[in-house]
Deep mutational scan, measured.
Amino acid sequence: NKFNKELQWATWEILNLPNLNEEQVKAFIDSLKDDPSQSANLLAEAKKLNDAQA
């Protein structure tokens, strides 16, 4: 289903952001699991944090 694909993509993207630490990655992944419908928003937040920590 649509959410599953978005969830998988967002998870992969977050796991490959170079500037997030392990705790941050885990928090984002946990949030994705809690509410897959928010995957696009969570991914945007993760990318923002990644850029801020570059």
Score class of each variant (00 low, 15 high):
residue 41 N to Y: 15
residue 30 D to T: 14
residue 26 K to Y: 11
residue 7 L to F: 07
residue 37 S to Y: 06
residue 13 E to D: 03
residue 43 L to D: 00
residue 49 L to S: 02
residue 6 E to L: 15
residue 41 N to V: 12
residue 29 I to W: 03
residue 42 L to I: 13
residue 19 N to A: 09
residue 43 L to F: 06
residue 35 D to F: 07
residue 48 K to Y: 07
residue 32 L to G: 01
residue 18 P to H: 09
residue 39 S to P: 03
residue 38 Q to D: 08
residue 21 N to A: 09
residue 15 L to D: 03
residue 28 F to K: 01
residue 4 N to F: 12
residue 30 D to W: 15
residue 14 I to S: 01
residue 48 K to I: 10
residue 2 K to E: 15
residue 43 L to H: 03
residue 51 D to I: 08
residue 32 L to N: 00
residue 51 D to H: 11
residue 39 S to W: 15
residue 39 S to T: 08
residue 3 F to G: 13
residue 16 N to M: 12
residue 24 Q to I: 03
residue 23 E to N: 10
residue 52 A to H: 10
residue 14 I to L: 12
residue 48 K to H: 08
residue 7 L to P: 02
residue 41 N to H: 12
residue 15 L to F: 08
residue 33 K to S: 09
residue 48 K to P: 00
residue 28 F to N: 00
residue 3 F to T: 14
residue 44 A to Y: 14
residue 48 K to G: 05
residue 36 P to L: 08
residue 18 P to V: 09
residue 40 A to H: 08
residue 15 L to W: 10
residue 21 N to I: 07
residue 29 I to E: 02
residue 33 K to T: 11
residue 29 I to Q: 03
residue 37 S to A: 12
residue 47 K to N: 06
residue 9 W to D: 04
residue 19 N to M: 06
residue 24 Q to W: 02
residue 52 A to N: 10
residue 29 I to G: 01
residue 17 L to V: 00
residue 35 D to R: 08
residue 40 A to Q: 09
residue 17 L to K: 01
residue 34 D to N: 12
residue 1 N to V: 04
residue 22 E to R: 10
residue 45 E to T: 11
residue 39 S to D: 02
residue 53 Q to E: 04
residue 5 K to L: 03
residue 45 E to H: 09
residue 18 P to T: 10
residue 46 A to L: 02
residue 43 L to S: 03
residue 39 S to F: 15
residue 52 A to E: 11
residue 41 N to F: 15
residue 12 W to M: 06
residue 47 K to H: 08
residue 31 S to T: 11
residue 42 L to D: 00
residue 18 P to G: 07
residue 26 K to N: 08
residue 23 E to D: 11
residue 9 W to I: 10
residue 7 L to I: 12
residue 30 D to F: 14
residue 20 L to A: 00
residue 25 V to W: 03
residue 38 Q to I: 06
residue 6 E to H: 10
residue 6 E to M: 12
residue 11 T to M: 14
residue 42 L to P: 01
residue 24 Q to Y: 02
residue 26 K to H: 10
residue 23 E to G: 09
residue 46 A to Q: 00
residue 10 A to L: 08
residue 51 D to R: 14
residue 50 N to A: 04
residue 51 D to F: 13
residue 49 L to P: 00
residue 40 A to G: 10
residue 18 P to D: 05
residue 53 Q to F: 07
residue 50 N to V: 01
residue 31 S to Y: 07
residue 21 N to S: 13
residue 27 A to I: 08
residue 34 D to Y: 11
residue 17 L to D: 00
residue 34 D to R: 13
residue 45 E to I: 13
residue 29 I to R: 03
residue 44 A to V: 11
residue 12 W to P: 01
residue 12 W to S: 06
residue 42 L to V: 14
residue 6 E to F: 15
residue 40 A to M: 15
residue 44 A to H: 12
residue 51 D to G: 07
residue 32 L to E: 00
residue 23 E to F: 14
residue 9 W to V: 09
residue 11 T to E: 04
residue 48 K to F: 11
residue 4 N to T: 10
residue 11 T to W: 05
residue 38 Q to E: 06
residue 9 W to F: 11
residue 34 D to P: 02
residue 33 K to V: 10
residue 2 K to G: 15
residue 14 I to Y: 02
residue 23 E to I: 10
residue 3 F to I: 14
residue 24 Q to A: 02
residue 36 P to V: 06
residue 14 I to Q: 01
residue 8 Q to N: 04
residue 43 L to V: 14
residue 32 L to R: 00
residue 27 A to L: 12
residue 35 D to K: 07
residue 53 Q to K: 05
residue 24 Q to L: 03
residue 14 I to N: 01
residue 24 Q to D: 03
residue 30 D to Y: 14
residue 9 W to L: 13
residue 6 E to A: 07
residue 10 A to M: 07
residue 51 D to V: 10
residue 5 K to R: 04
